[in-house]
């Protein structure tokens, strides 16, 4: 079978991918890496900013009435269903190539995921604390900020940081379809058969991902 033929070619192919080399475009690649990171940052920030109010309105125990909660939950569900790649393609086609499309696509995706997590976290807070504060005369807003949000804050922070990590990984792929970032150059390197560059890009991406994850772990530990 072709499988075994291919298997035999493994060492030869691996040799073409190594050692990683930047092909003389170090500055360009680093620039693109930065842009990719920017896309991820922008997407996460925008997504988070929208996700908070949406999540709050979708939580049954915090929303002003159950219908609002249901409506926003449906919005969340629909948004989460769309694959980010498709979203990015649509944005690219519509707003033209470039990082803006990528950031917007990631923002929508992040919004979907984060708002669900926010809503779920809110629904799981200990409502008895809220009763205690209400018994001492606090208003609903005070109860929300003083008890509900305080209980939910560590989880929300952890989720957002994680979303940044995930978004960076996605951002590297979005470049392939033209939404800006290093993915585009990855595709090019592949097309011109410069595989060492492919490996180099891989190394860059993995390095950033590991760094982000380390920060995420650290932050999560502190903000427990």
């Amino acid at each position: 079978m072709r499988f075994f033929e291919g298997f035999a070619r493994l060492p030869e192919v691996t040799a073409r991918f190594l050692p990683p080399s930047d092909g003389g475009h170090l500055v360009l690649l680093l620039e693109q890496l930065l842009i990719t990171f920017q896309i991820a940052l922008a997407g996460t920030l925008l997504g988070a900013v929208i996700a908070l109010p949406v999540g709050v309105l979708a939580a049954r125990n915090v929303a002003p009435n159950p219908t609002t909660a249901k409506v926003f939950r449906t919005i969340i569900v629909v948004t989460r269903g769309i694959p980010e790649l498709i979203l990015a393609i649509v944005f690219v086609i519509v707003t033209g190539m470039g990082p803006v499309a990528g950031a917007l696509a990631l923002a929508v995706g992040a919004m979907g995921l984060l708002s669900k997590l926010v809503a779920d976290s809110l629904e799981e807070t200990d409502t008895r604390v809220q009763t205690a504060l209400r018994a001492n005369g606090a208003t609903e807003w005070q109860v929300f900020f003083g008890a509900t949000l305080r209980q939910v804050a560590p989880a929300v922070i952890a989720h957002v940081i994680y979303q940044l990590d995930v978004n960076f990984r996605s951002a590297t792929l979005l470049g392939v379809v033209g939404a800006g970032g290093i993915g585009f150059y990855l595709l090019n390197a592949n097309r011109v058969l410069q595989f060492e560059v492919v490996t180099f890009i891989l190394v860059l991406v993995v390095a950033v991902v590991l760094a982000l994850e380390a920060i995420a772990v650290l932050l999560r530990y502190i903000v427990r």
Binding site: V129, L133, G137, A138
Partner: peptide, 29 residues
């Protein structure tokens, strides 16, 4: 209350301060 109903992640002082929300205007965080 029987189950205390404190916010676990807040400090003792902050929990006590939260009891004064009725006398304050606006939310506190």
């Amino acid at each position: 209350f029987q189950q205390f109903h404190l916010v676990g992640s807040m400090t003792a002082l902050e929990n006590v301060c939260a009891g004064a929300l009725g006398s304050l205007r606006g939310p506190r965080f």
